[in-house]
């Protein structure tokens, strides 16, 4: 599978990561390399194999609907890069 620069650019945008032109160049080549290696998986017949997304055979892990104490606001916001009153602040979201 070939991954071209255009695809890497699109994926980087999906992942919200800005790449320098030189980074894009290098990354595209490295990813090409890695995907080339990963492609060996195509050798295996997997038609009737069920996927494993959870390795443990457990199910129905549930919690009682019992309230727990929330964090004090100041503790919840202690790490906030920008705060206004009791709100987190982000650059204006344009809808």
């Amino acid at each position: 599978m070939a991954i071209d620069k255009q695809t890497v650019k699109y994926i980087a945008h999906l992942a919200r990561i800005e790449l320098e032109p030189s980074e894009l160049e290098k990354l595209s080549l490295q990813l090409q390399d890695i995907l080339g290696f990963i492609d060996k998986l195509k050798k295996i017949e997997v038609k009737d194999i069920s996927p494993t997304s959870h390795i443990l055979a457990i199910s129905n892990v549930l919690r009682e609907d019992k309230p727990k104490e929330s964090l004090p606001i100041d503790k919840a916001m202690e790490n906030a890069p920008q705060r206004q009153g009791n709100f987190f602040v982000v650059p204006k979201v344009i809808e």
Partner: peptide, 28 residues
Amino acid sequence: QSLIDMYNKTRGDAFGDEAKRRIILGTF
């Protein structure tokens, strides 16, 4: 900056090479 700029620049600037590589591979 716009919101999307903040996302892109924050993550582009602060993640190291390997982190970027893996995030992009995983996203792909």
